[in-house]
Design a binder for these strands. Structure first.
Lengths: 71, 71
DNA sequence: TATTTATGTCTTATATACTTGACTTTTTGC
DNA sequence: GCAAAAAGTCAAGTATATAAGACATAAATA
């Protein structure tokens, strides 16, 4: 499990800190950090909550990397 | 959390039993049953594994219901 | 009908996602 | 440079996803 750069990027696009996003989603800041870093294997429910806040879909943020960054 | 009928349908389309899918994905049969029934909040990793076997994406199987069954 | 296969359900045990608190390091803005 | 915010990390505890085994019922099939 590598870093989730798409998540990091989408969060930055909304100008949210890890803490901001964590609070919006209802988890601890460390949890967001671990997910972004790729240390945790989050639940689908949490992934969906994150997607909703960031205005993205599961496929956009959590589906397999295609090797390139989509814009 | 309600039943995941899209998952049940996609599994049926591939003519796989819960046991078949569970084995293909590497979890217990009871786990597949619980996910399909909506009792568990599975990990994103497991969801992706299920999607791959069934030839679907996360959005197709696990994104919010739109109220209608897509065909 | 009898017999297998698939599904549903319960219980006990274990792995791990997630929490809380604290601390360090990096980044950002004055 | 300095201060504050953000990000990274570690340890200990809690909640829950998942495993394994067993049994019951439903559905399919001979």
């Amino acid at each position: 499990m590598g870093k989730n750069l798409r998540l990091k990027s989408a969060r930055a696009a909304k100008d949210l800190s890890q803490k901001d996003l964590a609070e919006a989603v209802g988890v601890a800041r460390q949890t967001m950090n671990a997910i972004e870093k790729g240390d945790y294997n989050p639940s689908i429910k949490l992934c969906i909550a994150i997607c909703k806040i960031l205005g993205k879909t599961l496929d956009q943020l959590f589906w397999e990397d295609d090797g390139y960054e989509e814009q």
